[in-house]
Write a protein that binds this DNA or RNA. Sequence first.
DNA 1: CTCGTTCCGATGCGGTCGCATCGAATCATG
DNA 2: CATGATTCGATGCGACCGCATCGGAACGAG
Lengths: 200, 200
Amino acid sequence: MPRQVDYEERRRQIAEAVRLLITRSGMEAVSLRDVAAEAHVSMGAVQRCFRTKDEMLLFALEDISRRVGDRAKARIEASDAPRSAATLLDRTLSALALVDPEDRAEAQVWGAFVAHAAVSDQLAAVLRETYGKLHDLLVWLIGYGQDTGELTPTADPATEARTLLALTEGLTAQVLVGHLTPESAQEALRRYGRGLLTRG
Amino acid sequence: MPRQVDYEERRRQIAEAVRLLITRSGMEAVSLRDVAAEAHVSMGAVQRCFRTKDEMLLFALEDISRRVGDRAKARIEASDAPRSAATLLDRTLSALALVDPEDRAEAQVWGAFVAHAAVSDQLAAVLRETYGKLHDLLVWLIGYGQDTGELTPTADPATEARTLLALTEGLTAQVLVGHLTPESAQEALRRYGRGLLTRG
DNA sequence: CTCGTTCCGATGCGGTCGCATCGAATCATG
DNA sequence: CATGATTCGATGCGACCGCATCGGAACGAG
């Protein structure tokens, strides 16, 4: 056997380059050549990892979807003590809103893929799956909060989860465009969350 | 003087072609040649109207922004009788949510521009202006509803407007991707609106 | 070392891109 | 009609695109 290569690792490396390029110049600036240069590999190596450009973009989206999901879960589990459901919800939504400047790039890439998904069924399928997981996570959190008595029991967790997820995404988009500041978005999100509290 | 041309009309015609192309194949499929063909004019004519491609895209965004704003206002003024503020709000948000299948194309184009705006300051500026106008419209509607006593007076119109606008956009995006049905999005929107009623 | 396999990087190809150029057509004016 | 300003449509240019190809480097097995 000749020199063996960790393809999975290289794919991730390439996905990172795709993210960086989208952040810097938008999705239409993603070319195989630029991706290869950004990932410090040759074009041939990129083509060895992905048969086509679409395959590469698909993997990049799966990669970023995994990141978003992981971060949301991480912020939940990072709570060392049994936190209140309200705190967990707040942290989770903040993570999803990507309001931190360091997450801005990721939000930008996410938005680019959402826009592109309107044309590509494959990308749309990945997004649907990710949205589904985030939805389930929020449903669970809301149900948990209702069990502990923190959240109003009359709310339908599914509807509330849909609303929260959409609100979060909408706020993020408007922050990216510059219509809202991260602070005002954060405040709108918290204000809505407060409405879910039993004594809010 | 030689044959005179209605440039403004032609520009609109070209903008329509841009919309159609984005709807059909996404923003990166928009080339001068295809736009010219779709608009049934020659490439030279397109170049006479717009110095560069970016100028063309900018105009297309301004055109669609105007359409979105016009439609929102139209649905308000179309209410022949002095409608209730709640009805006006519901109609306005439905218009913005672009949940009707016929509006789906427009929502798709809007999303494409939002994504692209993260890279182009010029486009972002147009979007900010449009968002600002929509925000002001919602603020006015909410204030009107509070005056008539239909809406809870404790809510801050500005914050509520921000929330409603973001929620609407987020729901639209998720409908486009296929994570939500237009019906569930409409329901989530109405459910939130009910929370603003005095006796909701 | 030799061989066989695997991977890399360079190059080529056909196509499309945005943009510039230019002759022909058009039409009010003198 | 002749003129000159103006617009059109076609063509050319240089660059870049995605993808295919291929010689050779790298490296384990015999």
